[in-house]
Design a protein around this nucleic acid. Sequence first.
DNA 1: TTCTTATATAAGAATTATTCTCTTTTAAGA
DNA 2: TCTTAAAAGAGAATAATTCTTATATAAGAA
Lengths: 139, 139
Amino acid sequence: MKEINLVEKVKSKKLKVTPQRVAILEAIYMLDNHPTAENIIQYIGKNYPNIAVGTVYKVLESFVDNGLLNRVKTENDVMRYDPMVENHHHLYCCESDKIENFEDPELDHLIAEHFRKKKIKNFKIKDIKLQITGIFKNK
Amino acid sequence: MKEINLVEKVKSKKLKVTPQRVAILEAIYMLDNHPTAENIIQYIGKNYPNIAVGTVYKVLESFVDNGLLNRVKTENDVMRYDPMVENHHHLYCCESDKIENFEDPELDHLIAEHFRKKKIKNFKIKDIKLQITGIFKNK
DNA sequence: TTCTTATATAAGAATTATTCTCTTTTAAGA
DNA sequence: TCTTAAAAGAGAATAATTCTTATATAAGAA
C-alpha cells in the first residue's frame, strides 16, 4: 500500500497524521497475517528503533476505535489486528498461528435466511462470525 | 450436579481425584456462565479459602487437555471455561459478559452441505464455530 | 492396612501482554 | 510563526497466567 493511501486513511478519520501512525498502519498491511503488537514493533523497528511500546498500543487502540482496524480473538492471550473492517469470517490454522480472512456472501445469505425463519429464543442477533478451523494446504 | 458424577468425570479421564479438582469442576457447573479462573477461585473460596491460584490454573489446564472442558475465546484477555465439550456455538451478549451455549444441528447441516458443494480453496475444514453476537431479551 | 511413588498442591516469585502516568514533543489550524 | 490540543517517549504499574520448589497426598502395590 502506497504511503499516500496510508496518510489518507488516517486523515479520513480526523486523526493527526504522525510518522508513528503511518508506520504502524503500513506494518499491519505489509505483515498481512493479522499481526500482534509485538510483530508490529519488530517490523517497524528496522526504520524506527525508538518507538515506545505504549505508543503502539495507543495507536492501535485509536485505529480500532475509529474503524481502521478490528481486533481478532485468538486462543491464547495475544491480541491481533485486522485491517479488513468489512464484515468477514476467519480461517484459523490448527497447526500454526496463521489466520486468513474469508468472505462468502452466499453463505452469509444462507445463514441469515435460516435465522429469519428460525429465530433464537430471547436473543436478538446483531452479528454472526464464523471461526473456521482447519489446515492450509500447499502454500 | 451430584458429587458422585463429578468424581466419576474426573476418574473417567484417569486423573487423580483430589478435593481441589472436584471443587473446581463443581464450581464450573454451578457458575454456569463460562466462568473465568477468578470466578472459580471466588466461588470455591467459601469452602476452600486456601486453594492456590496456580493450582486452579493447573487443574483447568489438565481438564482442558483431557476433554472435560473447553476454553472460550473472549474479546478481552481473560480466558473462560466451558463444561460443554460437545460441538456447539456461542451467543455473546454485546452489553454484558454473558455467554450462552447454542446448538442447532439443522444449521450445522446447512453449513456442512454448503461447504461440501463449495469447498474453500487450499483449506481443509476441521471445525466450524459460530460466534453470534447480540442482545439477550427479557431474562 | 501400610508402603511407595508418581503426581498434585501451596506459596509466592516470575513472566508477559497491556495499560497508565507524567513529561516532552509535535501536527495542524489560527 | 504561534498556539494548543493531541500524540509520543520512557518507564512504572497492573493483571492474568505460568513457573519453581518444597511439601503433601491419591492410589496402586505389597
